[in-house]
Amino acid sequence: MQTIDLATTPLRELNAALQAQAATTNQTEWLIENPKGAHAIAVGLDAPIEVTVNGPTGYYCAGMNKQATVHVKGSAGPGVAENMMSGTVVIDGDASQYAGATGHGGLLVIKGNASSRCGISMKGIDIVVYGNIGHMSAFMAQTGNLVVLGDAGANLGDSLYEARLFVRGSVKSLGSDCVEKEMRPEHIAILKDLLERSGADAKPEDFKRYGSARTLYNFHVDHAGEY
């Protein structure tokens, strides 16, 4: 286990050390102490290492992650795991705005609540939130799965493309072109797998599925008010 204390080590040194790890590294476990809400912690990683951040992080923790597992023992600031490509990011606490924004792959698990715009413009990432998510979540989400064990805020899935949204609790309101859809066996299977992989204690059958009504896919004047 390598330990880096952000109280004494500059951010650049921390990220340079983590980014220098290759797929063949034997230094697979890293502990980061004293994050204190600092920004851009453990960004741009590209190796199958396990990074534990012992406390709350600021903006863009684990941004653009590939392969690595990043575990934040605390809350995460805006844009956690933004544009993640692969790997796993786990947040023990709450996540601020834009969690998993534009993520292309990998798994983001938020054990607390996520704030607004969770999964905005997601492009293949899977996101599991144990708690609630805020307004405008999954705005323009393209592909991937967003699973919410709690409630969803206003305008869920506005202008949605092909991402799948699964919500167990209530939805304050659906955004333009987002509708409830039938939960078919293949969706139960997807959900079961995601719940298992994220360690979430919930039954797939208790969720509702939301997706795109696809009425905005090609412009028509009758839908002009939805834009």
Partner: peptide
């Protein structure tokens, strides 16, 4: 959050947006 990170007892505080 950085602004709050050094307040006494922040670890046990209720923190929300």
């Amino acid at each position: 959050y950085r602004a709050l990170a050094n307040l006494p007892g922040i670890e046990a505080a209720r923190v929300w947006e």
